[in-house]
Design a protein around this nucleic acid. Structure first.
Length: 120
DNA sequence: TAAATGACTTAGG
DNA sequence: CCCTAAGCCATTT
């Protein structure tokens, strides 16, 4: 059985890019992570990785979107440390059981979502 | 409407 | 693998 599969193009049909991003990120299971590019690809815009970051950056608290489960392609936390939010992201990920390779880099190959070879 | 910004990614050295 | 430069795109001013 598969765990919380990503939204299908049909589910995202009719939604704006920002809505799609929120929908996809909301589907990331606890303890799993993905990259901005992967989210963009699922949204149907593989080149819009930066756009994903823009959407997450403008998220309102009431959106309740697990933005901390999105890192860059190599698993590094792309949030500016000056704002202090990067530390929050690391704390949230650790609390979910995500293993870190370094202080700012997660084992994204181990926690990557969606799973690459998941056969039922 | 146009210009600037940034929580990205890829290509070259 | 690390660093630099260029490309890409949605959001914000």
């Amino acid at each position: 059985m598969s765990e919380t599969p990503p939204p299908t193009p049909d589910d995202l049909d009719g939604l704006s890019f920002a809505e799609r991003v929120q929908r996809v990120v909301a589907a990331i299971p606890e303890g799993r992570v993905t990259s901005y590019g992967a989210v963009a690809a699922i949204c149907g815009a593989p080149r819009a990785a930066r756009g994903v970051g823009a959407v997450l950056n403008g998220l309102a608290p009431e959106e309740e979107v697990p933005w901390w489960r999105v890192v860059n392609r190599i698993g590094v936390l792309s949030i500016p440390a000056e704002l202090g939010r990067r530390t929050l992201q690391r704390t949230l990920l650790v609390a979910e059981g995500v293993a870190f390779r370094t202080e700012n880099q997660v084992e994204m190959e181990r926690h990557l979502w969606p799973a690459g070879d998941e056969v039922d």
